[in-house]
């Protein structure tokens, strides 16, 4: 590999203290536990996993909404895990985020113009309000909205339009990297495709890199160059999206893929769906050994005792004892 990754996460751990009351036993949620991955410039890294597996926490740790307990986040060759003050502000200019809920992520008391202008005011990008206004109109055009929408309030728009406003806000500071935290899961299927295409076009035009978080594997496969699969705070499998999608290694990925609905009843009948037993274990009290061992159809004695280390198999990473030699 000749190119250097734009974002390089190493052994990242984000824990939350959820101890209730003064005297109870200390309880810690290991939301993200020892996760490492790289994102190349102009690439999209897709992150999948079921609810509560820590993918949103991972995204929020990368944009510094949460502080990691351990590990490093290297962005353009600089460790940002412990940034403060002016340096943090400069980092925020390069690293932006698109949120899951287009209804909650826009301040209902601000007009669209004010929302998109705010990042420019915070980072002092333009000197006059006229210049900012001009840029807002340009951004609205890029995301497919009309200039006359500038004086309107978020409540007057549909979910898809609001998500476009959210994208315009993220683009306002000319970031190099955008964390997309399930940007399409709150939208209608027909609108999802529009937003995905918009994100892809913007990436091509502006040379952005994405960390794309979702729980829909087929959508992630479409947009991503690489996919990482998370389970209970751990990265269980990672590789090129084609490989992961068509030839999954980890039993959890296999189960996830079998859950994708197929729009053809004949094929769907022929396909066997792997049903996972039980609930996702609590991250406060994770199972010993492999985190997936409690639900894994192929679990052995060893899986319940020993934590599998990530190993490389055919150019990708998998954390499973089945592939160790």
């Amino acid at each position: 590999m000749s190119e250097k990754p734009i974002l390089s996460v190493r052994n990242l751990k984000t824990y939350f203290d959820v101890t209730k009351g003064l005297f109870s036993k200390k309880q810690i949620v290991k939301a993200v536990d020892d996760v490492s991955f790289d994102v190349m410039p102009n690439e999209t890294f897709g992150l999948v996993g079921e609810s509560g597996c820590g993918k949103t926490t991972l995204g929020r740790t990368i944009v510094k909404l949460y502080d990691p307990v351990e590990g490093s986040i290297e962005f353009m060759g600089k460790d940002i895990a412990n940034l403060k003050g002016a340096e943090l502000k400069a980092y925020r200019k390069d690293m932006q985020m698109i949120f899951q809920d287009p209804y909650a992520s826009l301040n209902p008391r601000m007009t669209v113009g004010e929302i998109i202008k705010e990042p420019m005011i915070i980072h002092n990008i333009y000197n006059t309000d006229a210049e900012r206004e001009e840029r807002v109109v340009e951004l609205l055009r890029i995301v497919g909205l009309k200039p006359d929408h500038i004086r309107r309030y978020p409540a007057e728009f549909s979910g898809g339009q609001r998500q476009r406003i959210g994208i315009a806000r993220a683009l306002a500071v000319n970031p190099k990297f955008i964390v997309c935290d399930e940007p399409i899961s709150a939208l209608d299927v027909s609108i999802q495709a529009q937003v995905i295409n918009l994100l892809e076009n913007i990436q091509k035009e502006m040379g952005l890199s994405y960390l794309f978080i979702a729980h829909d594997l087929s959508m992630v496969k479409h947009i991503s160059d690489k996919i990482g699969v998370m389970y209970l705070g751990h990265m269980v499998e990672m590789g090129k999206s084609e490989d992961v999608y068509h030839r999954p290694l980890h039993p959890y990925t296999t189960a996830l893929l079998s859950a994708i609905p197929i729009p053809d009843p004949d094929v769907a009948k022929a396909k066997s769906r792997i049903l996972l037993e039980g609930e996702i274990p609590s991250p406060i009290n994770p199972p010993a050994g492999c985190p997936f061992s409690t639900r894994c159809p192929k679990a052995t004695e060893r899986c319940h005792k020993e934590m599998p280390q990530p190993i490389e198999v055919g150019g990708r990473m998998v954390a499973c004892h089945l592939y160790e030699r």
Binding site: M95, M97, A104, S105, E118, I122, G166
Partner: peptide, 17 residues
């Protein structure tokens, strides 16, 4: 904890703002 407040933080807004 609403996302618009988190969004403002990601944009680099000061706590006062």
């Amino acid at each position: 904890e609403q996302e618009y407040a988190l969004a403002a933080k990601v944009l680099g807004a000061s706590d006062m703002r």
